[in-house]
Amino acid sequence: MSMATMERAGAHVSTSRLDWTPYLAGAGIGILSWIAFAIAKDPIGVTTAYGRLAGEVAIPLLGAETVATNTYWKAAPFAIDYGVLFLVGIMLGAFVSAIVSGTFKIELVPDIWKAEIGTSVWKRFAYAFFGGVIIMYGARLAGGCTSGHGISGGLQLAVSSWLFLAVMFATGLVASAVLFRKKI
């Protein structure tokens, strides 16, 4: 098969195979949670491991002494363990899925951003970085993110997690209305 044929085949697959209904993907994540709770004994979550990873990155920036004596990192030291490998797994799975479906694509500025806000790559990068800073701060302050609180906590009917979901969606709606406001 020539390269061009493969690309055409890939393009064809991308429309058919990526058309999973959100309900099927959601059901799959739900069933995956059974395995996470019953076998791995560790509910699906992302930012706890991320916070520990930040401690490792902080060593050259702030000095080993600062990191070693920090209360948060003392309680959550960095190690290549279940939580960190789980993050590696997420990337592996998404990568394979993207390649298999032929949807892997270098994206600097998403379409919606180009259409509604602008085509500047640096502006998008600046927003993404700043957004990353505050989403992580918020996640650590709340004790979890859309995975740990939203899905794993939500499915346990945890009070903290349903509060998280309600408030997160509310401020997200307001922020979205401001960011995507139509110019008059």
């Binding site: 989403i135 302050l141 004790g143 609180h149 408030v167």
Partner: peptide, 22 residues
């Protein structure tokens, strides 16, 4: 903590365009 964190998170999610896992 949860309410404040979630409030910041919602704003961050819109500016970033993703949540940490996605």
């Amino acid at each position: 903590g949860v309410a404040l964190g979630a409030a910041i998170f919602g704003v961050g999610m819109v500016i970033y365009g993703y949540c940490p896992g996605t």
